[in-house]
Amino acid sequence: MLVTTAFAIGTPSFLAAVLLQGLFAVRLHWFPTGGTGDGLGRMLWHLTLPAVALALYLIGMLARVTRAAMLDILGQEHVTVARSRGVSERQVIRRHVFRNALGTVLTTGGLIVSTLLVCTVLVESAFSVGGIGQLLELSTTTKDFPTVQAISLIMVGLFMTVNLVVDLLHPLVDPRVALGPRRQAA
């Protein structure tokens, strides 16, 4: 598990794109090398390798953070108390460990989505898939500054929206986190 996540985290998305194309598209002929295809089924088939190239790093990072957060909580006192009361290991993991680790995982998930926005540009270029990344690349090379600014504004808006959603979901996951100012007891 640790070796797999280290490999996934250490492989940049553009390198994963090239390696996946070389193996599954060129050598094995299982997937197309690029484009988008006609129809929904063909489009999904064409987007499989780019999606895997983007997700490889992100899944590795999320798995590593989830493991670290759960190991940290496994050593805490309330887990030991739950085990000593005779609670089954499955319930200890589900109720006490994963529930408390979910805040860290949620925050990391928000950061991962912002990373996904940046990596999309590189993967779209490698697979010749038309999208916002390819438009940004074309606009940059042709010095179309209004388009570059608009795409940057959209990406910043998406980043802020994701962070807002994570901040609003955090009190639902961890009741100790409160929205708004706390009142001091007199």
Rank of each mutant, 00 (worst) to 15 (best):
T104L: 02
L106G: 04
V113I: 15
R94A: 14
F98T: 13
V92Q: 03
R99Q: 12
R95W: 08
I93R: 11
R85M: 15
N100C: 02
L111P: 01
A82V: 03
G110V: 07
A101D: 05
V105L: 07
S114E: 10
V81F: 14
T104I: 07
Q91D: 14
V87A: 12
L116P: 03
I112F: 00
V118N: 13
I93P: 01
Q91N: 14
R94D: 12
V113F: 07
L116D: 05
G86P: 12
A82G: 06
L117M: 13
R94I: 03
L106D: 10
G103A: 08
G109M: 10
L116F: 09
T107E: 13
Q91S: 15
H96R: 13
L117F: 12
T115F: 03
E77R: 13
T80E: 11
C119S: 14
T80A: 10
R85G: 07
V105N: 08
L106C: 04
V79G: 05
T108R: 02
E89W: 00
R83W: 04
R83T: 07
I93W: 10
E89F: 01
R83K: 11
G110H: 03
T107F: 00
G103K: 06
T115S: 09
T80Q: 10
V97H: 02
T104Q: 09
R99N: 05
A101Y: 00
V118R: 10
G86D: 15
R83G: 02
L106R: 11
V81Q: 15
G109F: 01
A82T: 10
E89T: 05
L102I: 01
V87C: 12
Q76Y: 01
S88D: 11
V105P: 04
T107L: 12
V113L: 12
S84L: 15
H78I: 03
T80Y: 02
G75Q: 14
A101M: 03
V97S: 03
V113T: 09
V81C: 04
R94M: 10
V92C: 07
L102Q: 04
L117R: 02
R95C: 03
L102W: 05
H78R: 13
R83A: 07
R83Q: 13
E89C: 00
F98P: 04
H78K: 11
E77F: 00
S114K: 10
R90L: 13
L102N: 02
H96N: 12
V79S: 06
S114D: 14
R90I: 08
L106E: 02
N100S: 13
E77L: 08
